[in-house]
Design a protein around this nucleic acid. Sequence first.
DNA 1: CGCGTTTATTGGATGGTACCAATTCAGTCT
DNA 2: AGACTGAATTGGTACCATCCAATAAACGCG
Lengths: 236, 236
Amino acid sequence: MARQAKHEELRVALLGEMGGAAPHTPLPTEREIATQHGVSRNTVRQALDALEAAGSVYRVQGAGTFVAPPVVSKSLTLTSFSEDMAERNLEPGSRLLAAGTVRAGRQLAERLGVAPDSKVVRVSRLRLADGSPMCLENVHFPADRVPGLVDEDLTGSLYALLNERYGLDIRSADQIIRAVDLDDTESALLGVPLGSSGLRVQRVGLDRRDTPVEATTTIYRADRYDIRFTVRRAQS
Amino acid sequence: MARQAKHEELRVALLGEMGGAAPHTPLPTEREIATQHGVSRNTVRQALDALEAAGSVYRVQGAGTFVAPPVVSKSLTLTSFSEDMAERNLEPGSRLLAAGTVRAGRQLAERLGVAPDSKVVRVSRLRLADGSPMCLENVHFPADRVPGLVDEDLTGSLYALLNERYGLDIRSADQIIRAVDLDDTESALLGVPLGSSGLRVQRVGLDRRDTPVEATTTIYRADRYDIRFTVRRAQS
DNA sequence: CGCGTTTATTGGATGGTACCAATTCAGTCT
DNA sequence: AGACTGAATTGGTACCATCCAATAAACGCG
């Protein structure tokens, strides 16, 4: 049955209805949508809130709700490499470079919120898009949370594996983005000239309780990768 | 008087109350907050929704609402350079490099949604932090929307000027982030060695109706600047 | 004592109502 | 024609009331 929340169903329905509509086309009024779909105006507002947050519509008090222009950028959400590549219409791939258990060390320990002496599992992979290198990925987990991980198949989606095998559900992540100069090893693996620049993304994945679960450092080829998103003014 | 919305006041109040509280400390239940502050539970939820979106609290159905750990990263919001530097405890500065009216050209025209032959106002500035170079900034406006801009004082906050003088209110922006190799001019102006990498942020500022108002390309020094933010899983 | 079950608690969803504030537009006056 | 005015429209805020779903604490059985 429709286990889905009504505002969620409505959101998808509205998204479909305004599919090919021209930008700035007005949607029906909130009250109209409510009666048409047989829901309360509260529910309509929830759906529209989500659509507005996603940048699909914009609202002007007194005027109406309108379909937003086809923005180049989507709102920034947490995605796995596989999902990220799918959005860009590229075929994701993976080459395992190394996997093992090591001592956390100071910096990693701080990011994961564990003791510096504790063990962490480290997985190094070269990620491919349409068969050629896209980025270098170093993932770290607290060892006690993922026993036996190194013996699994590590060429696919780690997120899926984590969820199924260990019940780890990463809901949000803190990220730090920086431009870096690639060193010899990195540029060789990525197949770019020495001295090229790269985009480094440091991420700490958090579960539902905002507890660190995973720390990843990814270095992307600057010539193949960019990050696109929409930002909004904070509420005054 | 308190012209402010109640849920907004409540949000600030709650933020204050949980000021020095330890992470994972539970907040009062939504129903308790409601009675304590003399508002409805709906209003409480609105306030908590905002706090959750900002990453200040997290909620677990059936358990409660808790203060979130002191994340390094804030949620990504649209900020001016001045605001950005203030957050980093740096003193913002500015050096005007050039200002004038030029033909839009294809790329810029597309970003601003105007004709390629139309005129745009261009303002080039070197932005400083604590007196030393932080980034190169190139701002473009459709010329007909900002008459007389080039004769204004362009060393301060452009956003403030736009708002006061032209009533332009930038509510959101589409951004594209990329790592780039700096050319001779850029590295000289920024005061970094030749061949250094930089972080390029291309931004299109949109008004309340999601209409392009401004297009900016900013190149940051990689050694002084990073971008920090939190991402969440999209609603399933 | 340990483990499964029940039950109370807590956030999530949904419906309803009322009034406020910004916008629009038709009508009016000049 | 143009500027002003005011009513109707539309989203924004706020309150109330119910029920559901996930959770965790209390309970009781073996």
